[in-house]
Each structure stands twice: as C-alpha cells, then as structure tokens.
Amino acid sequence: MKTFVTGLKYLLILAGAALFVIPLLWMLTVSLSTPEQVAQPGIRLWPSQFKWDNYRIALTLMPFGKYAMNTLIVTFLAVLGGALSSSLVAFGFARLRAPGKDALFVLMLSTMMLPAMVTSIPLFIIFKNLGWYDTLLPLIIPSWFGNAFYIFLMRQFFLTMPVEMEEAAEIDGCGKFRIFWQIMLPLSKPALISVVVFSFVAHWNDFLTPLIYLNSVDKRTLALGLATFADVWGVDIVSLMAASTVVLLPVLVIFFLAQKYFVQGIVMTGIKG
C-alpha cells in the first residue's frame, strides 16, 4: 500500500513536471527542425536532426547584435544602480532613526499597488521634454532611485543582522556611510544577489517601457525586437523559436547560477509582516 501511494505521488509529480517543461522542449525541438518537419502532423518533442544553422539564420534576420548590446547596456546599468541605491535606502530604513521614517516606508510599499499605467503618461511627457524619447535613458535612470520591492527585501535582511558590530565600529569613529559600505553591504551578499537576480530578470524581460519609449529600429531591446520580429508577416516558426530560445537563455543561466538566492528571495516576499 505504502509503495503504491509513493508510486502514485511520483507519477503525479512527473506528469505535472512534464506538462510544465514540454512547451520549452517543444520550442527547442522546433528551433532545430526544418520547416517541412514542423508542418508534418503529429507530436515531436525531440529533434530528429540538430540544425544549428537555424540559429545563425534567425539572428541575421533581425539586427540581433544591436538588440543584445542595447539590452546588456540597459540591464547592466539599471541593475547596478538599482541594487546600490535600494540597499542604501534599505540601510536607512533598517538602522537610522529619523522622524517620519515609518510613514515613508508605508507610503513606499503602498506604491507597489499603483498601476504602472497611471504614472506612464506623465512620465512619458517628462522624458519627452527632457529629450530622452528614443534613447535608453528612460529604461535606466528611474531604477537608480531605488525600487520599493528591493528596498523591502534588503531591509528585512538588514534587520536580522546584529547591531553590536556597527556599534563597535561607531565607537571607533566609523561614519554611517562607512558602516554601510564596509560592514553591512559585504555581509548582505545573499540578499544582494537575490535583488540583482530579480532586477536582472525584470529588466531583461521588460516590454512595456521599451515599447513606450523606443522608436527607431537600432535602439530596440531584445524583448521589443523579438515582439516586432514575431509581428512581421512571413517570419517562419523555426526562426521565431530559435530567436525566442536565444532571448530566454541568459535568464536561464542567471537563474541556475543563483538559484539558491533567487528562491530565498521569493520565499521572503511571501513572509507575513
């Protein structure tokens, strides 16, 4: 009876896992097949031949190098600035005493409920007046002012750290900023990594902001480029799946490198309080 129940559990989990993974497997299979194979009826989840040349063709159909470069610039600068400013603010919220701090924290958290569409139009007008339309700046600069969610994550982590070390440093004449920079930040690597991963995935995957602000072809990011690529009449499914796989790959790599921290970060978001 016991082995039967265990067997049943495995069967259910395996079936479920298969349902979740099969779409990605299918994507990979199609990307390596010939258009004729794809047009044949039936189900194929493993390529009968590996046509790696499909990838070269797909990536020359669109200015892939340009898109990748833009995406890398945006992601790198936004992640770096966002992680630094968010942890700086988080340290302020976790450790410093100032009037109105808690009210500001609540206000900041409540903006997470605000639909992006409410602010998007006035922001568009601001950035247009600044001459930032059709540049990468609107995709980068706002993240340098901290992100409510990342600040929350970092603050929760700072709160778990003992204050004795900071007090000792303070007695030795260490200023607040040095405490933050030389003691707190190096010790909060797990939280920092999860913020970096979250932020990387968010910027790499972002579609709405590039859609609003980028106009010329050579300014596009990968997500926007892929969407326009998909929209262009006559692009074949094989090239589309190859391009999608390439856009997905860096996110997968980052995830597997930092899986432990990423999972921790998500788990922390569900913690009450």
Binding site: A17, L24, L226, V247
Partner: peptide, 23 residues
Amino acid sequence: FRTMFFVPSIVPMVAGSVLWLWL
C-alpha cells in the same frame, strides 16, 4: 522538480507569448 515547475515563470513574457502563440 521545483526547478521544472518554476522555470516557466521566468521565461521573458515576450518569448513566452511567441512560444504559446505557436503552441
């Protein structure tokens, strides 16, 4: 198994949409 169930949720929305349009 946890990874297998989780990975689809980090697939870029655009790539996921293109994929499902064909699925």
